[in-house]
Structure formats: structure tokens, C-alpha cells
Simulated scan of single mutants.
Amino acid sequence: MSLQALSPRTPGHGSQGSASPAAAGQPRLAFERVSLSFAGHAAVSDVSLAVQPGEIACLLGPSGCGKTTLLRIAAGIEVQDRGRVLIDGAEVAGPARTLPPEARGVGLVFQDYALFPHLTILDNVRFGLKGRPAGEAIAAAREALERVRLAHHAGHYPHNLSGGEQQRVALARALVPGPRVLLMDEPFSGLDRRLRDKVRDETLAVLRENGATAVVVTHDPEEAMRIGDRIALMRRGRLVQVGDPETLYRHPADIEAARFFSELNEAEGRIEGGQVHAALGSFPVPAGLEGAGRVTVAVRPHDIALGPAGAGVAGRVASRRYLGEVDRVEVAIAGLAQPLEVRTTAIGAFAPGQTVGVTVPAARVHIFAQPAAA
């Protein structure tokens, strides 16, 4: 089946004033030092970020961190106080001009899907094609529905569809005009976990096959790692770290970033003789921390290895809980007020009261300087 109806529109097609076609190497969407405050509170502060053509970027962070506000600025729903927004190198919001949402060449998928209850599924999808001849718009809408495997629902209404099906209709409606950038605000949060994984994978497949440039807002780090080529981690209106999923997970910018991606076991550490010494063991000093007075040593539960007594740091199993694919084992070791949490695939190998050896690979340890005492 042809994907012409869902492919990026020809440069110059669409609303007058749309962004110009991208030059080679030009970001598809760029924020340049964008800031916006509400009632004196900085919702977005000095954010610069470039999204490349065909890239799926995730804005990740807790509620209230500014990620949805940044998306709304890109869409033209909010207007920034300072900075510029560019699409294909052309300013769409800034000192020179501010284009309305319909002239920016962006598609929107909202958290609640925003389908029209009084329109059929086919009419919902072709709603954004009002400027095209009726026959062409209907054909394009049907093709979009076929692509998301909902053509058999064309004559139905939104209330006849499940939450996952409604999400796919919203995706088809957003893609059918051929937007330069697709903006998605928590698009999977209203679905239960099992359905969410399925719909998310299907959505990702559609975006990849169409070469779509997309910015997806989410508060779920696992979701961001599953779908994003790059992740922009935000906190209190600022960008904390930008990179591919493995970089953010393996090399978090600070301990708050590490905590955001998973649970951590944390221990106080001191630097002596070129080593970091802690209850978890001794490790090389990371570059740049040689002069740090106090450090925090952190390790994720699944990065800790348990073995027979005498191998590694001595510990005693405090509890064991079967979780299906792994056992959750709590291990008490000297020098730690709280037991270590360990996730191990060695199901049933460790029992409460058992003495064990705890090994933490140096490559899996995260070490951060502690703030100086006031």
C-alpha cells in the first residue's frame, strides 16, 4: 500500500506562511533559548534543543517540569517570553514573527485524543483536510485508517472504539495532512499497562515507516527509552541532560537524574589513596571528583551480584520476595542503615538468614559529589 497520504507534505503545500523546506543538515524543529513564566514562576527557562528530520525525541520529566509547556510553545498554543522556535530553519515564533498553530506545519496528538464525538471515525480523520477536494480528502483519510488497521471502523463513532483504537484514530488524523513535526502529549497515559505497550509499539512502527519527526512528552522513563532516539530530561523548567537512552541511563548527569530512571541503593563514600571507599566496596575515583570531600555511591538493584560468603562484601539476607522473572532480595551489610535491594534472576537461590557475598561491578557504580556543608 502506498504511504503517500501519510508522508511529509511537499514543501510549500498547505497554509500560507508555512515554514520553508529544510536545508541539508538543518534541524526540523529547534528551540533557541526559550523561556516562559506564568505569574512570576519560570515554567520553561533558557531551553535550547534541536530535533533532526526523522528523529523521535522524548521530553521526559516529572509533572510540572515544563515539558508540556515546551510542546505547547512549539505548537503555538503558548507564546514564549524570550527565545525563538524554528521549523526547517524558518522562525515560527520569535522577535521577527509568530505564526498561528495552523500555519506551522505541525500535527498534535493530545492526552485525551480530542476526537469529535458527533463525527464518524472517517470524518474525524479527514477533519484536517478541509482545504482539499472531498474525494481526495476521503481517499486520504481511508488510506490513513488502513495504515492503522481501522478501516473497518470508518463509519463508527469514537464511543464505539476502545481507548487504544481511539489513540490510533488520533494518530491517523494528526499524520494525514503530512505535518513537518508531530507533537504528542502523554499519548499513552490513558491506557492500561498491557494495552499501552501494544499501542505504543504500533505507534512507533507507524512513525518509523513514515519517517516522521516527532516530539513525545512523557513522565515514564521506560517509555522514553523504548520510543525515543534521544531523550531530553527536564527538571524545574530546565534541560538537565540530552542524549540517547543508553547514555542517560548509564551516565546520568547527577544523582537526581539517576534516581529518576530507577531505584537506587545509596551509600556515603570517602576518597582516600585514589579510591572511593564505601560500605559497598572500593572503586576508582571518577574524573573530576578527585578533590571532592564527600561523595555518594549509588548502584541499581539489578547491577548487584550475590554469591557465596567470602566473595565480595559480607552480607546477610534479610528478606526474599518472588516477583516472577526475578527475586527481590534485601541484604543487610555493615555500615548501611538500610538493607540493599537486589534484583536477581537466581530464583530461590537465597533465603532469609543466609550469609552471602555482595559484589558491585565498578562499571555499574554511579558516584556523585555531595554538596558542601552549609
Rank of each mutant, 00 (worst) to 15 (best):
M1N: 11
M1G: 09
Q4C: 08
S7F: 07
P8Q: 11
R9P: 01
T10Q: 08
P11C: 11
S15G: 14
S15I: 06
S15Y: 14
P27D: 06
R28T: 06
V34N: 09
G40Y: 02
V47M: 10
E55V: 13
I56K: 06
A57I: 02
G61Q: 07
P62N: 12
T69R: 03
I77S: 04
E78H: 13
V79H: 13
R84Q: 14
V85A: 15
A90L: 12
A93Q: 13
G94N: 04
T98C: 11
G105I: 01
V106M: 15
V106T: 08
L115Y: 05
F116A: 13
F116T: 10
P117D: 05
H118S: 11
L122A: 15
D123P: 04
F127Q: 15
A140G: 04
A140C: 00
R142N: 01
R142P: 01
A151M: 04
H153R: 08
H156M: 14
L171R: 04
A174P: 04
L175W: 14
G190F: 04
L191P: 05
D192F: 05
R193T: 07
R194E: 00
R194H: 11
L195R: 06
L207F: 07
E209T: 07
G211D: 01
V215R: 14
V217I: 13
E223T: 09
D229I: 06
D229P: 00
R230T: 07
R230Q: 14
M234T: 13
P245R: 06
L248R: 13
H251V: 09
E256Q: 11
A257T: 08
A258K: 01
F260W: 05
F260K: 03
F260A: 02
E263C: 09
A267H: 04
H277T: 09
A278H: 04
S282C: 09
A287T: 08
G288D: 14
G288K: 05
L289M: 09
T296D: 15
H302P: 01
L306R: 04
L306E: 10
A309D: 15
A311K: 07
V313D: 07
V313M: 12
A314Y: 12
V317C: 07
L323E: 00
D327Q: 05
A332M: 11
R343S: 13
P352R: 02
Q354S: 01
A362M: 06
R364W: 00
V365C: 11
